[in-house]
Design a protein around this nucleic acid. Structure first.
Lengths: 249, 249
DNA sequence: CGGCACGTTGACGTTTTTCAATAGCCGTGG
DNA sequence: CCACGGCTATTGAAAAACGTCAACGTGCCG
């Protein structure tokens, strides 16, 4: 039942969402406990009344079709919030599962609801996070709809690098990516075999290294060229009228 | 410069988001003008400071890759809000274009921002709409990643039916779908030719009719079986603690 | 009448999947 | 210690799904 303390991650989030010290404190007070989850556990089943802020580890959201085909719709990385829709609006239309051991800070859905009345800027920050998720899904749709295997792969590795960089989880052009090729396949809408072959080609061309749960982007410039990557969709800040509110004259 | 008046559509939205008469009035007061847009116009370029509530007509959001490939990420139907991310958070990472003549009600982004301070429940309604969009994108990712052409098509036609039904734009199992096969292809990540052939097969099997901008779902049960359709992702209501707020004791 | 946008169809190519087999790694139990 | 199973990565060969190219029809509009 540890309290969530300030940490490098919290500091990054504070900057990212332009939060004041007081607002950070509100969040910290709401996070009623930090939970350790083992790899392979369901985040929703564990708690559908709560919103989870991932502090460490990877998770993924996915859907499974009736015949067993699986599509991973997004990866959940440190600093990401998950379960907002389930706890605020009572619908959970996908599953969420940890891909590694995770450290997760839980926030009562009721408290998130209260934010809309008691901390408008934090409510806006939630909306901001939700809109950012939407932008990532939009990019994912573009990848699956119009990019080939090689381009999808390049895009995925670059986007993960951008996201992890923001929260301080990369070293230069390398980062830990603790998932199997099967997960990559299920994320990119490809077969395992094809992922393996595409990876092999890209390795041979000196584009990247990928082994032991570690990625090194050897030639990020060429990777960006391959898929036309642009991290713009991860940007965005609070509207000045939300950031600095002044009541109507 | 017509004021937005109450209309069947507004009534449906009121029910959908569980708004009070007062809240509806707030929205109506904010909608400073209704604009008529011709087919093929850009919604963003027309106004990036504003949020647009589509009252009538179809639009779509899309991205174009450097070599011209296009992916439509979502269709914007009557009752949908668009431009929230652009006007609240200052990022616009896709284009929006009308597919038919459209009647659009504009709301100043500043006013949306104010809602977070002055009308928490409406701010929550915005977040709700954003989360719903997220759920539709999630389904789209599943379709593009793991469903074949036939399944994607079935899913698209069923989802459009559900969405249009909610806002009162269907008659039984039929609805107007004023777009070309090229748009369907760009939405489903397929080639025009393949869309045409798949459509032909489905027609021949008595699954649906599709001509003259009109769709008739002839065998919706079988269509649902084909793709495992479930309208659950369109559901969801405000959390009771947002709906009926009581200050902390 | 001609041009244009859209739908339709056939023939052929490419990407990606599926099936099947092999190899390495790792933990477990004998 | 070693054998074994289970999971992951890797590779080859064949098949399926889907894309491209090209042609033609049809309705609409100037």
């Amino acid at each position: 039942m540890d309290k969530v303390g300030t940490s490098p991650l919290v500091e990054k989030l504070k900057l990212l969402m332009e939060l004041t010290n007081e607002e950070v404190q509100v969040i910290l007070d709401l996070s009623f406990k930090t939970q350790q989850l083992a790899k392979g556990q369901s985040l929703i089943a564990c708690d559908s009344e709560n919103v989870s802020l991932v502090m460490d580890g990877w998770a993924c959201r996915y859907k499974i079709l009736s015949d067993g085909r699986r599509q991973i719709t997004s990866f959940v990385l440190p600093g990401d919030l998950t379960g907002v829709r389930a706890s605020l609006f009572g619908v959970s239309d996908f599953d969420t599962e940890t891909l590694t051991d995770c450290s997760v800070s839980l926030i009562d859905g009721k408290d998130i609801a209260r934010l809309f009345y008691e901390a408008p800027r934090l409510a806006a920050a939630i909306t901001w996070a939700s809109a950012r998720e939407e932008a990532m899904l939009t990019e994912h749709v573009v990848s699956l709809g119009r990019r080939n295997a090689r381009e999808r792969m390049a895009h995925l590795f670059l986007e993960l690098h951008s996201r992890l960089e923001i929260v301080g989880f990369v070293e230069q052009m390398a980062y830990g990516m603790p998932i199997t090729q099967e997960m990559i396949a299920d994320c990119l809408g490809l077969s395992i075999v094809h992922v393996n072959r595409t990876l092999k080609t890209m390795r041979k061309e000196g584009l990247l290294e990928y082994y032991n749960g570690y990625v090194i982007l050897k030639d990020s410039k060429r990777l960006r060229n391959i898929c036309g990557y642009d991290s713009n969709h991860l940007e965005g800040t609070l509207h000045p009228d939300i950031a600095d509110y002044e009541p109507e004259a």
